[in-house]
Simulated scan of single mutants.
Amino acid sequence: MSKSYNDKVYNHSPKRPLLFNCLRAFFVGGSICLFGQGISFFYMYFFDFTEQTAGDPTVSTLIFLTMIVTGFGHYDKIAQFAGAGTAVPVTGFGNAVISAAIEHKSEGFVQGVGGNMFKLAGSVILFGVFSAFLITIIKTLLLELGVIG
């Protein structure tokens, strides 16, 4: 009985344009990355950063701009159009942080905004810092043992 029901649901459900959705995600995500590369070049040209040192201010700028766009309510419209194309770049992180803050602002600044802002992003930060710590320990041990030079 359930197999025939599932078949009916499948046959009557609208088909998703998978290829078109993938292309939109690819081009919007690529455009965000292209914009980030432009910011990186801006920092290298006007502020004398190197290719290695321009990454941190570029990421910070992208997160900040995403938070501004999310605050004005435009990021959700872009995300509805692009799907995963906006979640994969670092802009998805900025959107997650500020969306939680906006959602809980009625509870006050400390318990609402401050307490809920990093619920999703906090785990990303925690595991990122912890992973960097472990990699640094492993690299230090390998350098001390002379395995790498």
Rank of each mutant, 00 (worst) to 15 (best):
G92N: 03
G149E: 11
L23V: 13
Q111T: 10
F26T: 04
E103H: 13
G115S: 12
A100V: 03
F47V: 06
Q52A: 15
L142D: 11
H104W: 05
L19V: 12
V147S: 11
F64Y: 10
I135R: 11
H104M: 10
Q52C: 05
V110S: 13
S123V: 08
I68R: 06
D76K: 14
C33N: 07
E107R: 12
M1N: 14
Y75I: 01
I137E: 11
G85R: 00
Y43A: 03
F133C: 13
G71V: 06
F64S: 09
A96P: 01
T53Y: 11
L62M: 15
V129T: 07
E144T: 07
I135H: 13
F93C: 05
T66F: 01
M67R: 01
S40M: 11
F133H: 07
V113S: 03
F26L: 14
Y75A: 00
D56L: 13
H104Q: 12
K139W: 06
V90Y: 03
V88D: 01
T61W: 02
L145T: 05
D76S: 15
G112T: 06
D7F: 09
F41I: 06
F27V: 12
T66M: 06
F20W: 10
C22R: 14
G29Q: 00
L134H: 09
F133V: 12
G29P: 03
V147K: 15
H74G: 15
E103F: 10
S31P: 03
V69P: 01
F35W: 06
K105T: 04
M117W: 03
D56C: 10
M67N: 00
T61P: 00
N6G: 06
G71M: 11
L120Q: 09
N11E: 15
V124M: 07
Q111E: 13
G146Y: 10
D48N: 15
F47E: 11
G94I: 01
I102V: 12
I98S: 01
K139T: 14
A100Y: 02
